[in-house]
Amino acid sequence: MSGLVSVKVEFSGGLELLFDNQRSHRVSVPSHVSTSGKKTLNNNEGTDAGEGRPADLAHLILWLRDNLLKEREELFVENGTVRPGILVLVNDTDWELEGEGDYQLRDGDDIVFISTLHGG
């Protein structure tokens, strides 16, 4: 089994401004999360993958916060998940239908984060 899972991540509705004003990103994250682990992650953790539970969407969100986010983390993450008012799509489907943070990442997944907080 490969140690990394590669997914496409897109930001929209103003969230891209927090990610270097770049809408689309291709990222590779460790395919397994260390079970002993804490919530914070860093790039090097991918090396001893293969142990622990498979990486899920909740894990990806924290990974994005720690590795891709450029500013104002509070506009993206709140209480360990995305801030209320951010819509998440997994392969064009509402993450609420996919188990939200428990969804297990697969190679080639297309994950979209859309902020809905822009008013009228």
Binding site: L87, L89, L117, H118
Partner: peptide, 16 residues
């Protein structure tokens, strides 16, 4: 609304 804008490829000018 957000999904309509996304699926129709609408660019939202205003930012937070």
């Amino acid at each position: 609304c957000a999904l309509w804008a996304w699926w129709r490829g609408l660019n939202v000018v205003g930012k937070e």
